[in-house]
Design a protein around this nucleic acid. Sequence first.
RNA 1: CGGGGCGUAGCGCAGGUGGCUAGCGCGUCUGUUUUGGGAGCAGAAGGUCGCAGGUUCAAGUCCUGCCGCCCCGACCA
Length: 571
Amino acid sequence: MKLSQYFVPTLKEEPSEAMVPSHKLMLRAGLIRQVSAGVFSWLPLGFRVLNKVINILREEMNAIGGQEFLLPALNPIEIWEQTGRVDAMGDVMFHIKNREGLVLAPTHEEIITYHARQHIQSYKDLPQIWYQIQTKFRNEPRPKSGVLRCRQFIMKDSYSLDLSWEGLDISYNKHLEAYKKIFTRCKLNFFIVGASSGAMGGSKSQEFMVESNAGEDVCAIAPSGYAANLEVATSSLPPVGRKEPSLQLEKFPTPNAKTIDDLINQFGFIENELAKSVVYIINSEPVLILMRGNDELNETKLQSAFGTNKFRPATPEELFEITGANAGSIGPINLKTKIKIVADNLLKDANGLVSGANEDGYHYKNIDFLRDCHIDAYYDLRTVREGEPCPINGSPIKIVKAIELGHIFKLGTKYSESLGANFLDNEGNEHPIIMGSYGIGVERIIACFIEQNHDEKGIIWDYPLTPFDIHLISVNIKTELIRNESEEIYQILIKNGYEVLYDDRDETPGVKFNDADLIGIPIQIIIGEKNIKNGFVEIKFRRTQQRELIRKEKLIEHLKHIIPSQPPNFQ
RNA sequence: CGGGGCGUAGCGCAGGUGGCUAGCGCGUCUGUUUUGGGAGCAGAAGGUCGCAGGUUCAAGUCCUGCCGCCCCGACCA
């Protein structure tokens, strides 16, 4: 491809709206342009990269027996009502305004299950792995960070249909391995974490993560190999436990203590002796939740403990009405109204605790959960913190920000049951199909790669994602010798099967070198007058900025050693 | 949805206490000289100042409403 005729609008200056490196560079290198918040066009150079990623996805999905579909983005709303996901998705789903009964699909479990219901009737039809690479629509409240969070984006989504839970395990593991191969082939540094299934339903789920400050997810990782999304992460911190003897319950004035830190500073308590109380309205019922000291309540854990996402913190007015005190003086004893009380596992059967007296300006000390109040249930509700011992071998946990690249779920029968997708077993009994669902954010692969591979000059591509194999640069196209030699080398490279971006523009060397470094193709071949007169061309490696001179006639042979050949396509 | 910032040429920005013909840098076009790290000179084109309404002799500038974009938070398979 000759750059003089190729639409690659590079930017010398940083676009003001972009904050994260990948977003800035994708705009500057002419890969994408924004059309609206969370909506992007892919320009020719970027689309080449996108297609390289898509090829890898296709090859690896085909390799595990996946069959490629293309499902519609426009969906009848009825099918979403049948699975109860119109409510579950809420505002995230786009609804068509001028045609009744249509929505834009944010994911495709419903459509897949619809087709399975139509045509999967016997155990002989199973298992199946169905996938597609297609555009999803989600009405994100706040798109951000370029293509990392968009209202319209491309997803590789696949769905497994099995006749048994063992079959689901096999399909799930096939995807696990395929995803590892995909991200490894894309040369990403990634890790896998245990994750929450959230509104998807289902049992097990894992996420593929790339550590990045641009990420919106937070993960706990440890040297032992422990890795979990903070939403579900646990540690092996010892519980508070009991002290003997259990001292007498005592109310004491705390007029200037509103927070846990106030109590520590003014009265010399240690953090672990304190029991913090928060009140949530869960399924319209108030619940008092006790946490150790300054531990943070994890709402995802709360969701799984209570099996609902219909909860919210109580308002200050509700708080006073329910407990008889304002925030800062609330506790499990002497509550004005009788409500359910739950506590974090670390406080199980503990004593010697300090908590609010449900009377402004007073606390109790020496609280014994077995003696002084009734705890209805204990759950793991706390958010793990940096440095805590990991559950595998106690090695210290590190908290990192990460970008979610992919997510794999064991769905089970939620969708097959609600849509009636059943099959007959070999004894003629009907069962719901057992499903899994597996997604990869296609654009995120590209953004993550750039997050991990750039410097102050621009992107540093690597094979196989690079938009071209070689960036050929003629230093002065107006010189006849250079023009002729460059054209000849361009043709030779193409004949040898290389994808070449040839900068044949009449620009100064500085412009060409800077654009080449910004675009970031791994190998630049530079044709300059002095070198070519002596029969040499110059090879420059983008990543290291190393240069070497090669005799022109040995160029192709040399390139065979430094450019990896592409693996044969799977069929 | 709450808080903050911004909207002026293709891009990055100034002007903002109302007052000459709305500017600067980059880019673009023409000519010319240049050619190994974002060239020099000379000339030129390019604007409903986000939209609508209002105040005024006069609005890019003041007022009201709306729209859009970015950031923080909330939210989020």
